[in-house]
Design a protein around this nucleic acid. Structure first.
Lengths: 216, 216
DNA sequence: CGTTCGGTTGATTCCGTTCAACGCGAGTGG
DNA sequence: CCACTCGCGTTGAACGGAATCAACCGAACG
């Protein structure tokens, strides 16, 4: 990575802190809506957020699920490109764009942080493309579970138990499939002994076997 | 956009120029390969490039088609994430990463340029997700043609004639469909009077009607 | 004139969508 | 406490669209 080792120094961190406010949102709460003027940039302190895009034809596409330490709220022509909605109880940093721009003029080095995050988000979106274009839905979903299991907060490495913060519709809208297919395919994965469903939101997953299945 | 109005000043441009070399690649030439150590960042002066990702299962996924003024060559853990291949005769700026890092330490403001490009690429990738997840292939391909028609170098606004720099396989690998489907779907679009094929690489396209079709 | 490569077309198969019904737990009010 | 509803997840049957495998076409090239 280009700036993998970058860290803000104490002064920079404080300067950024000075213009940020800490805010809280309960679960299933809209933080902002698509096409609304982009006033703030957000950083997740804890919780989870989905970015969703409303298509002209009425369907919904989820661009990303975001976790602690991720950033969101980038704009296109001054407007938010997608809506941001909390999946669960979430705490955020809220940074007003005008103040941020001023800060960056004085301390251009801070941009590295944002460049770092932009590159991270881009990689995630590329992985998203890879998932969403698997011709077989089993691979899409299996790959999605692997992706989720990278989130330490929601995956226990000992017991291999994954807790999903999103519902079936969210998964379907992320992978571009019908929500019934999500259900059915989870069953297929269970029949292949790749996962064991404990409840609708919790499952034990066999990461090794899943990886093998995907690469075939 | 966050830094839509940013421009390098004369000094900065010169400093960046000093560490860049101008190189040339003929059509269908590999610039670098996936998983190779990332030594250079590239900016396209003229021409067109595709970024392609080789999957474990042997299939190929194209991440993006890039045109003049675009940047590519970002790394993950020091390695290129995808291969870069020219579609046509292409002229590039080649910027070595070590020199770039040093330059940025002295002139951190230059980073804005890279942040700008990263955000632009991210938006393109999000549009890619939207295209690749249309349930109907006709919409995927139609949307792709619209996307291509944004490139002034390859689309004549008067005659509405689009020149494709990529072949059928590339389009298929970009949209996640079979190459035969690309052919068939072009025929469907022609039967719907949305396009008129002049040759395999050139076609006249009805952007208005296509937009309407997609939003239904 | 034969070869090769990219593009097109055809027939069959299969996978995911659609529309519909059903199950189940949580919350609510009588 | 039970009946009812509501949201969410699951299951079933029929349909349709894209993949696959195969053949074919035409232009470029030696």
């Amino acid at each position: 990575m280009m700036f993998g080792d970058f860290r803000l120094d104490a002064q920079e961190r404080e300067a950024l802190n000075a213009i940020s406010s800490k805010i809280h949102k309960p679960a299933k709460c809209r933080i902002y809506a698509q096409d609304e003027p982009a006033r703030y940039l957000y950083i997740i302190r804890s919780g989870a957020v989905r970015l969703e895009y409303q298509r002209e034809d009425g369907r919904n596409q989820i661009f990303a699920f975001l976790w602690a330490d991720n950033m969101f709220g980038t704009a296109e022509n001054g407007l938010y490109r997608a809506s941001a909605v909390t999946l669960i109880d979430t705490y955020l940093f809220q940074i007003p764009y005008p103040a941020l721009r001023t800060l960056i003029e004085f301390r251009p080095r801070i941009q590295t942080l944002f460049l770092q995050h932009a590159l991270k988000y881009t990689r995630a979106t590329e992985r998203h493309v890879l998932l969403a274009t698997y011709p077989l839905v089993t691979k899409r979903l299996a790959g999605f579970l692997l992706e989720c299991s990278k989130q330490a907060d929601f995956f226990d490495r000992r017991s291999h138990i994954l807790t999903l913060a999103m519902d079936r519709k969210d998964i379907a809208d992320y992978l571009g499939i019908a929500l019934e297919t999500t259900s059915r395919t989870l069953k297929v994965l269970e029949d292949m002994d790749l996962i064991k469903r404990l409840s609708s939101q919790r499952m034990q997953i066999n990461t090794e076997q899943i990886r093998i299945m995907i690469s075939q």
